[in-house]
């Protein structure tokens, strides 16, 4: 068999995929198998495709994606834990023609930042919130999140989440969908090619809503895995997510064009 030189097949006609230039070349700090990198890329692809590179300001959270600004190649601000929707409000109110989004995890958005999340949604700020829900605090070492499932083991629920002691997992996405200030609320995933395509369409819709000044906030939840925190291989984590997370956090649109979807 003839030896294949890799340089010989790098040709424009063989190009099937190209990284968006709105992702930097910096190596992602996420664990192999994590969904964050895919979610980052989808947002940046949408911004590039919409031609909004020079008009977008992103707000990074505290959590695993605290360094999102190192990977997203646009103007970025790094918020205090949970406060990203307040920063985004401050930016958008003074630059109403710019595109503003926050990127937040479950601890950031649904625990310490619940107040900022609900009020930004309720005021109908014309921004996009991308919410990554993996049911665990990844960065600090796998502690319970507000979205940790009942019975799920984490480093602070070593015997499983007990409702009597630790309360219920919070479906904050369904909660914000009830507020008149949200215009588009959806729940997606990025663990299969089909899910990625759907998630990208949802993110695109959210940003289009903002650019077209639709009345209200667009909120995209991405249910994702945390194979490190869940202590599973990436494949097992994705299977576990399908079997356990999706039945509780149902995928699909919850509110479209300001109207709740009947289920």
């Amino acid at each position: 068999m003839a030896e294949i030189n890799i340089q010989d097949i790098i040709k424009p006609e063989n190009l099937v995929y190209k990284k968006t230039r709105l992702m930097t070349d910096k190596t992602l700090s996420y664990c192999p198998g994590c969904g964050h990198g895919t979610a980052h890329r989808l947002i940046m692809e949408v911004i590039e495709e919409m031609g909004k590179e020079h008009d977008t300001i992103g707000v990074a959270p505290v959590g695993c994606s605290v360094l999102a600004y190192e990977f997203m190649n646009i103007d970025m601000q790094e918020a205090a834990h949970g406060r990203a929707p307040a920063l985004a409000t401050g930016i958008k109110r003074l630059w109403p023609d710019k595109v503003v989004f926050t990127y937040q995890g479950d601890g950031d958005l649904a625990a310490i930042g619940t107040g900022e999340t609900i009020h930004a949604c309720n005021r109908g700020e014309n921004i996009v919130i991308v919410f990554i829900n993996n049911g665990i605090y990844g960065m600090t070492g796998g502690q319970m999140a507000p979205t940790t499932l009942v019975g799920m083991k984490t480093s602070t629920t070593p015997y499983g989440r007990d409702v009597a002691q630790m309360g219920n997992p919070l479906k904050i996405t369904e909660l914000v969908a009830q507020l008149p200030g949200t215009y588009y609320v959806t729940r997606q995933a990025v663990h299969t090619p089909a899910a990625v395509r759907k998630a990208k369409r949802a993110i695109r819709k959210a940003f289009e809503n903002q650019v077209n000044k639709k009345p209200g906030l667009s909120f995209v939840e991405v249910v994702s895995n945390c194979n490190s925190g869940w202590k599973m291989t990436p494949v097992d984590a994705n299977n576990w997510m399908e079997e356990n997370m999706f039945p509780f956090y149902n995928l699909g649109d919850i509110k479209v064009d300001g109207k709740l979807i009947e289920k």
Binding site: V59, R83, A86, L87, G90, R93, L94, G115
Partner: peptide
């Protein structure tokens, strides 16, 4: 000039952070 009543002082100072970081006077 924009005037906004925030939901808390925690939110106001972070709105200020976001706004000030864009070069505007907040």
């Amino acid at each position: 000039m924009v005037v906004l009543q925030a939901e808390s002082e925690v939110a106001s100072i972070n709105m200020l952070y976001g706004a000030g970081a864009t070069g505007k006077k907040a």
